[in-house]
Design a protein around this nucleic acid. Structure first.
Length: 421
RNA sequence: GGAGGGAUGGCCGAGUGGACGAAGGCGGUUGUCUUGAAAACAACUGUGGGGGUAACCUCACCGGGGGUUCGAAUCCCUCUCCCUCCGCCA
């Protein structure tokens, strides 16, 4: 959520910044409602002040005649107050709903663009492997070895679900452990989170109201399946005032991610690239405003480190304004090369949300003793998405005989198994 | 799932219609005293909104929401969470 005071004071700048995201937002309506709200607030508060004072007097009065007169008078004032309060409530609820729909303001040096084609490649690390045979896509390799079972996945759960067996199932588990151990070493605190959370967590993290269609949920019990660990991690400190000594906070967590998104079948969704359920290890940071740039850099370096250790060729993209996530000011994507699919696969998205989520989730800290509280900055980054990492490993390390070599760094997490298949 | 009990400031804990944003204690900060520390004493010590250049004024908040009343921490309704007992269960 944006700061209403900022919208009030720097209206045209905000409009211009939002404009480069490529959608229209009715800032004028917000300004207008805010104005109305404050006008009414002043009226109602004046009346309340009068009622408070008079009520006190009534308690102390001896003369019954004037007492009764005042009580009658205050009854009328009370009626006025409740009708004004109702108006204020209505306006505030409308205003709040509108505010929740406004995305974050892109960082000032965000490249302007429409979609992912306008993202800027910042660097490319490693070289694409060459093969003396035609590299296969992972769905062929996996199916040939009996390690990925699409049919049975569909039988169990419908399209876009799959079953992993033996070596690949184990490699998936190994990757989770490998990444959690690595991030712990990098200074993140590991936590195990609920995979279902209450609706409010999604609103606070910025997934609602916009992405309601993408979330699996049980309305009856207000239990919503996490779409990413970012959602519970954002809410870990919701409604808290964090001691500034404790900042920055770095967390890492593994969760499955459940996404309802409806895609057309076809090449885009072939294999295990886009399931309704996938695993991910997430990195998350809460910082003071002056150190979030530094933290963003750390998240990026740490995610890159994961790719490097797994021997993956990757590139880093700076997202353009049109491709930026709803809550993000700056986002870097890391994409790994997959020779079988012949494309770059996004395995990590690393974002600085500034105080956008913190304002929604009401996460604050006190810069100095006896000063006002301020909102923290929040950052998140995948470290990494598991299925696509798996794809890259399978396709990059495929052998001419169809087997898959386990990356050296992963071998200890695979009971020292060096070859799958 | 059934029955009962509870939720008050950073913490403990008083408060059943007006003098309560809330006693008292602990903790914290600052000051006095002291060579220094401790002790003692004193003052200060919640959050958010609105107005004002500012001093400051004002409103709201005693788990959440709603209601009764001139006036609610206090009365009523409702929801959530916690505790105890019973049942069920991996």
């Amino acid at each position: 959520m944006l700061d209403i005071q900022l919208i009030r004071q720097k209206t045209s700048e905000i409009k211009a910044s939002l404009n480069i995201r490529g959608s229209d937002y009715d800032i004028d309506k917000i300004i207008n409602l805010d104005k109305q709200r404050r006008t009414l607030l002043q009226q109602t508060e004046q009346l309340k002040s009068k009622r408070n004072k008079t009520s006190k007097d009534i308690g102390n009065m001896k003369d019954n005649q004037s007492r009764v007169t005042l009580i009658d008078e205050m009854r009328e004032v009370g009626n006025q107050i409740s009708s004004l309060d109702n108006e204020v409530r209505k306006i505030e609820s409308t205003l709040h709903k509108l505010m929740l729909e406004i995305p974050n303001i892109p960082h000032s040096d965000t490249p302007v663009g429409e979609n992912d084609k306008d993202n800027v490649t910042i660097k490319e690390v490693g070289t694409k492997p060459s093969f003396d045979f035609i590299p296969k896509p992972h769905w062929e390799i996996g199916t040939n070895l009996g390690l990925i079972d699409f049919e049975r996945g569909v039988k169990l759960s419908g399209s876009r679900f799959y079953v992993l067996n033996k070596g690949i199932a184990r490699m998936q588990r190994a990757l989770i452990n490998f990444m959690l151990d690595l991030h712990t070493q990098q200074g993140y605190s590991e936590c195990y989170l609920p995979f279902m959370v209450k609706e409010i967590n999604f609103t606070a993290a910025g997934q609602l109201p916009k992405f309601a269609d993408n979330i699996y949920r049980d309305i009856e019990d207000d239990a919503w399946f996490v779409t990413t660990a970012e959602v519970p991690l954002t809410n870990l400190h919701r409604d808290e005032i964090i001691s500034s000594n404790d900042l920055p906070l770095f967390y890492t967590a593994y969760t499955p991610c459940f996404r309802r998104e409806k895609f057309a079948a076809g090449k885009e969704v072939r294999g295990i690239k886009r399931g309704h359920q996938f695993d991910k290890v997430e990195m998350y940071a809460l910082t003071t405003p002056d150190s979030s740039d530094e933290a963003l850099n750390k998240l990026l370096i740490d995610a890159e480190e994961t790719c490097k250790l797994l021997n993956l060729t990757y590139r880093v993209q700076r997202l353009c304004s049109g491709d930026l996530g709803f809550g993000s000011q700056i986002t870097y994507d890391i994409e790994v090369w997959s020779p079988g699919c012949n494309e770059w696969l996004e395995v990590s998205s690393i974002s600085n949300c500034g105080d956008f989520q913190a304002r929604r989730a009401n996460i604050r800290y006190r810069p100095k003793k006896n000063t006002k509280t301020e909102y923290v900055h929040t950052l998140n980054g995948s470290g990494l998405g598991i299925p696509r990492t798996l794809i890259a490993i399978i396709e990059n390390n495929q052998q001419s005989d169809g087997r898959i070599q386990v990356p050296e760094a992963l071998v200890p997490w695979m009971s020292n198994e060096e070859m799958i298949g």
